[in-house]
Simulated scan of single mutants.
Amino acid sequence: MSKPSASPQAQAESYALYGLSYADDHVADTFDIRIVADMLDISYSHFYHTFSAVMNEPYWHYVKRHRIELAAGMLRHSGYSIAEIGELSGYMTLAAFSKAFKQHFKYSPKDFRKIQILPNEKRTLHITETITASFGNNMLANLFHYDRTERISISESTLYYTLLSHGDDPITEMVLKMNNHENRFRKIIEIFDIPQALVITGTLDAVPVTNYEKLSIFAGILLPNHQLAAHKQLRDNYPYLLQKRIQGGSFLKLRLPLSFAAAGIPMYEFIDRSCREGIFKMRDNQFFISLTGPNSCEIFIPLLKQRVI
């Protein structure tokens, strides 16, 4: 990755966000911080201090926290065993995962799975509901039913995205910034004639495990990996966009006559309720919203092929 041409402050933020993006895209992988610094063509020390200054936490602290929080989300909503969740979160052994998890949450993974209300849950949902109340997010909550969903298959894809917020007040920033970013992404799709692409939004984190002020909200273009020419065009023309691999497989799709902001709270409640009741189980935390119109959207929920009991 070449160095961005920008002001020192913008350049520092670009480096930090690239490091955040790389860590998120390699949750299950072992990697060295020097790999990230080398990709940015800067020194280890420069990257380490830049990330800490921009994100207000050291890089490896973020990597560990992010992995543990995503694991907590899977404990809540997936059908994986605890050992499988540890492996998917980058831990070599169940013992190492259990120790790290308990150090962070003060609960063992087994005990955490039994918690009915997560530590940040009420606060995060209350803040979000307060911000999005004007969008009428409770008016059409009855639309969120399993019998309105359809099971579809999505091929392996790549998300080209920008972070609308990575701290302080992420939901407010998302609402304020989304229109401009959505228009920009739709123009890109039109310019390169890639109608198969979706404009989507979501979070890199596990809602509501991650503290509200640390949520990273994104907007971007989801493009199937077999569209090789389109991928080259996006990478060549928009190198500043961050990238994330999206696993293909079975998804539930729910079409809604709601804006993305109005869909947020009832979407989470629908997912949480369905997972608790065993209606379906997720394979990871990567549910997202496709923006299909000013007052319409589609929810995509990744499903396990076979639930682990």
Rank of each mutant, 00 (worst) to 15 (best):
S5K: 11
S7F: 09
P8F: 02
A10C: 09
E13P: 04
S14D: 15
Y18T: 01
A23D: 00
D24E: 09
D25I: 01
D25G: 02
V27E: 07
A28V: 02
F31A: 08
D38R: 12
M39E: 14
D41G: 15
Y44T: 14
Y44L: 11
Y44N: 08
F47Y: 13
F47H: 08
Y48F: 09
S52V: 01
M55W: 01
N56A: 10
Y59E: 01
Y59Q: 04
K64H: 02
R65A: 07
R67W: 00
A72W: 03
G73R: 02
G73M: 05
M74P: 05
L75D: 03
S81D: 10
E84A: 15
L94A: 08
L94Q: 13
A95D: 14
A95G: 07
A95T: 13
F97I: 04
F97D: 03
K99V: 12
A100L: 00
F101D: 07
Q103R: 13
H104M: 10
H104F: 14
F105V: 04
F105M: 03
F112I: 04
F112R: 05
F112Q: 05
I115K: 13
P119D: 05
N120K: 04
N120H: 09
E121Q: 08
K122R: 13
T124G: 06
E129F: 11
E129N: 14
S134T: 14
N137G: 06
N137V: 01
N138Q: 11
L143R: 12
F144N: 05
D147F: 10
I152P: 03
S153I: 11
S157G: 03
L159Y: 06
Y161A: 02
S165H: 12
P170A: 09
T172I: 12
L176A: 15
K177I: 06
N179Y: 13
N179W: 10
H181Q: 12
E182I: 15
R186H: 08
K187S: 11
I189V: 07
E190C: 00
Q196G: 06
Q196D: 13
A197I: 06
V199L: 05
T201V: 12
T203Q: 14
L204I: 04
V207Y: 00
N211C: 05
Y212G: 01
E213F: 11
G220I: 01
L223A: 08
N225H: 07
L228T: 15
A229L: 14
H231T: 00
K232V: 11
N237T: 10
Q247A: 15
F251M: 05
F251H: 08
L256G: 04
P257D: 09
A261L: 03
A262H: 00
A263Q: 12
A263I: 11
E269Y: 06
S274I: 00
R276L: 07
E277M: 09
G278H: 05
G278R: 06
I279F: 04
F280G: 02
K281S: 05
M282S: 09
M282I: 15
M282Q: 11
M282A: 13
D284K: 07
D284G: 08
N285E: 09
Q286C: 04
S290L: 03
T292V: 03
P294A: 09
I299S: 08
I301C: 07
L304A: 14
L304I: 14
Q306A: 11
Q306T: 11
Q306G: 05
Q306W: 08
V308T: 12
